[in-house]
Design a protein around this nucleic acid. Sequence first.
DNA 1: AACAGTAGCACCCGACGTCC
DNA 2: GGACGTCGGGTGCTACTGTT
Length: 306
Amino acid sequence: MSKLPPMSAIRAFEAAARHQSFTRAAEELGMTQAAVSYQIRLLEDRIGAPLFVRLPRHVELTSRGRQLAPAVTEAFEALRIAFAGIENAVRTVLSITTLTTFASNWLIARLGRFQQLHPNIAVQIEVSQQIVDFAHDDFDIGIRSGTGDWPGLEAHRLFPNQFTPVCSPDLIRGMELREPSDLLKLPILTPSDPWWRDWFTAAGVKDIDLSDRPDNSLGAQQFEGMAAMAGQGVAMINPFFFPADLAAGRLVQPFDLVVEADRSYWLVYPKARKRSPKIQAFRDWVLSEIAGDVETTAPRVNRAEA
DNA sequence: AACAGTAGCACCCGACGTCC
DNA sequence: GGACGTCGGGTGCTACTGTT
């Protein structure tokens, strides 16, 4: 495949051919007439034939120029359309990668309010438990759990990663739950979750052994909570994600003890893109929603009917 | 008024040397 | 051997002047 002439020369030719003027072409391209003249001469030298006839006060395309011009203009028009499409998509589509439970138990129900505020921004959500690499994946914003120290990323802390056991009221109706260790009489959902050991340790119950229990793992707090509400056992969840279920009594918290992990939930995006209007819009909206949560709908705790 | 030619400037890039 | 700085040549531009 033969090499194309320099793109700057082709660009100058295309504009000059359309305007039939080096001066008008220069005005359009933001350069001087001399630069256009120079670029076109480069192109003519390269081709080995003149593309314009220089006449007093104006230029005209030669027959070779007339042969070339429509194809070049058409190619640039295709490029303009392609770039306009991409620019429009980049400006109006916000792509978010988020953890499952944040999406299902926090984001989705509120997204309508963001859409009302920003009807021109379309939100695309991808749920993943993996930490995405913004250098390789086309995401604008990520919601992830961790300590906030990700190189190259701007990180805004959303809320702490707290955990406490919850279950359905029916599961423990008529039972005497006096000590945290009494929970061990009940089915434990995802017993391999290290939060169980951490919570029991904080509750003063040392060296619990859950290894003889079925090693079921539900993979996301959303599913733990659903299983608990269905009466299948006790789940270790972050109460922040279940305020309505706790308030309505679909879930009860047998013990007040809530343990805070060293990890938190964060909203992140590449530092280089912190001036992107759509990213700023989503960040500001999430932070204001979180601030509203803290004021009005902070997880309320239901005591179990012991 | 419009294009062509030229001088001079800024910037880029490859070659090269130095350092660790 | 890789990172970094320096240097010189090439490129592409503007400003200016000449030509038609």
